[in-house]
C-alpha cells in the first residue's frame, strides 16, 4: 500500500473516530437531560418508562 493510500485511510479513519466520539458525547448529553425527573414523579407507576419532563398524569 502506498504512503498516499495509507495516509488517506488514516485521515478517513480519524474523521470517523472524531464523528463517533462527538456523536457519543451528544447522545450522552441528550440522555442526561431526559433522565432528570421532577418531584411529581415520586411514586408514579409510569416513572420507569416515562421520559416526559412535565407530568402527563395530571400531577403538579
Amino acid at each position: 500500500m502506498s504512503h498516499a493510500t495509507s495516509s488517506l485511510l488514516l485521515n478517513v479513519g480519524l474523521i470517523l473516530v472524531v464523528l463517533l466520539v462527538a456523536g457519543l458525547a451528544l447522545g450522552a448529553l441528550i440522555k442526561q437531560r431526559r433522565r432528570k425527573k421532577p418531584l411529581s414523579c415520586i411514586g408514579c407507576p409510569q416513572s420507569g418508562s416515562c421520559s416526559q419532563r412535565t407530568c402527563t398524569q395530571g400531577k403538579k
Binding site: S6, S7, L10, N11, L14, V18
Partner: peptide
C-alpha cells in the same frame, strides 16, 4: 502516518 494538519490540530 500522514494525517492532515487540520485533523492533527483538531485531535
Amino acid at each position: 502516518g500522514g494525517a492532515a494538519l487540520w485533523l492533527r490540530s483538531l485531535i
